[in-house]
Design a protein around this nucleic acid. Structure first.
Lengths: 235, 235
DNA sequence: GCGCAACCGGAGACCCATCTCCGCTTCGTG
DNA sequence: CACGAAGCGGAGATGGGTCTCCGGTTGCGC
């Protein structure tokens, strides 16, 4: 896109592209934006999602005004962080799915690989995860979320085909595992070692087919839940 | 065990939960106390833990002053609800552990039974679960928590002995599963069917020993985490 | 250099949930 | 029945957080 400075104001007002990516900002402004994101990441990791905006601004070495000029609201800042996390997850899933079943025998399946990577990136951003899997208004984000879960679905089918996963398992089952993993990561953040790894191992063991095992007794849920995300509030 | 019956029963249940509560209250006061607990339960179930005290008072048909005379703080009210939940869990675990391995072949182990019951009672109180497994100051509660996890440890050992659970599994692994289950219940509350049941089934499948399975790669965590509970804030 | 639009800081306006205070009412005992 | 203690309601004080406003500053095209 090419746009001169006189139209800069209109661009900022109309499209969120400038606000989101930080492109087209004056050098100092762009730098401050990056600092703010980094500071927010650190602050949330330390104090959870209820770290105050003032601390974030202080950590970034800027004033409140700057923070709120870059991000119209605290929520927007959090969403931006979620974006980074999600992007990493999606990118890895793309690669992992593209690899298909072409793996060394005994190696973890693409599904397992992706789930462990999800854990990894979520753990390194604990505190910013609140909105990650929630139902989200922005349509562009919804589109990418749909892509992710299509990829996960592919990998789930592959894993079933190779006998790595029991056939009754649905995509929603995987989704629920991710939700649970997310919460566990946030809950156990700061308690020493990465407890979530071992937990995920146990869950994945539950995914695998076992010779004489009884089938799952409870019915699976509708798979549309996965792309919709979980609702923010309950009634 | 639910508080669905008359107010008198709810008052009695609340009275036995903690010695300090509602003992020598005037009749109207005791009734209001029970109403408040019931109202809080409903409000939290609907709007999550951030339901306002004003709504709780309104639901109970009393004024703010009454609420704060009965419960010195909103936290105390939440703790009182947690108490009810915990009591039910502990009681069931006691019975289940006492039964030991004396079960019909193919029947679920005491461990599985207790975990499902935990899910049941947590699900019927979703929104009040925030402080359930957190590190808690009151020493009497700590004592009972220790008892619960001793019982769970017994049942874990029994399940290992009967071959229902793989030998490498530790009490902390079970604890982490409970934490994850708790969060999942809260996250998926109100999204139709009880998704947590199927999820728990999958996790329990991961508990079971499988003939040719590889052992868990990651080391278990220190078991003291279990009775300590997870810290409230991270630094 | 010059000018101006974009940017900056941070004091305080604003909002909202928690909690307090006090004049009036109700219980229940002597 | 009468009287004091316990209980009651709910308006508003409090506090902590988000967000705004505006005078001064700075990057950057010309």
């Amino acid at each position: 896109m090419t746009m001169n400075d006189s139209q800069g104001r209109a661009a900022a007002a109309a499209g969120t592209a400038t606000a989101r990516t930080g492109k087209g900002l004056r050098r100092d402004a762009a730098e401050n934006r990056a600092r703010l994101l980094r500071a927010a990441w650190e602050a949330f990791a330390e104090h959870g999602a209820d770290a105050g905006v003032e601390e974030i601004a202080r950590r970034a070495g800027v004033g409140m005004g700057t923070l709120y000029r870059r991000f119209p609201t605290k929520d927007a800042l959090i969403n931006e962080l979620s974006e980074v996390i999600f992007e990493s997850i999606l990118e890895y899933a793309r690669m992992s799915a593209a690899l298909g079943t072409d793996r060394a025998p005994g190696a973890p399946s693409g599904l397992e690989e992706s789930l462990f990577h999800m854990g990894e990136v979520m753990a390194s951003h604990h505190g910013c995860l609140a909105r990650l899997w929630q139902a989200s208004p922005p349509p562009e984000q919804d589109e990418r979320r749909t892509e992710l879960w299509q990829l996960m679905g592919q990998m789930l089918d592959q894993a079933k085909a190779t006998g790595d996963v029991r056939p009754e398992l649905t995509l929603t089952d995987v989704y629920l595992s991710v939700l649970a993993l997310r919460s566990l990561i946030d809950d156990t953040a700061g308690t020493g070692p990465d407890l979530w790894r071992r937990y995920l191992e146990v869950v994945l063991a539950g995914f695998r087919p076992t010779p004489g095992a009884r089938p799952l007794a409870y019915q699976p849920a509708d798979d549309t839940l996965v792309t919709r995300g979980i609702p923010k509030h309950r009634h």
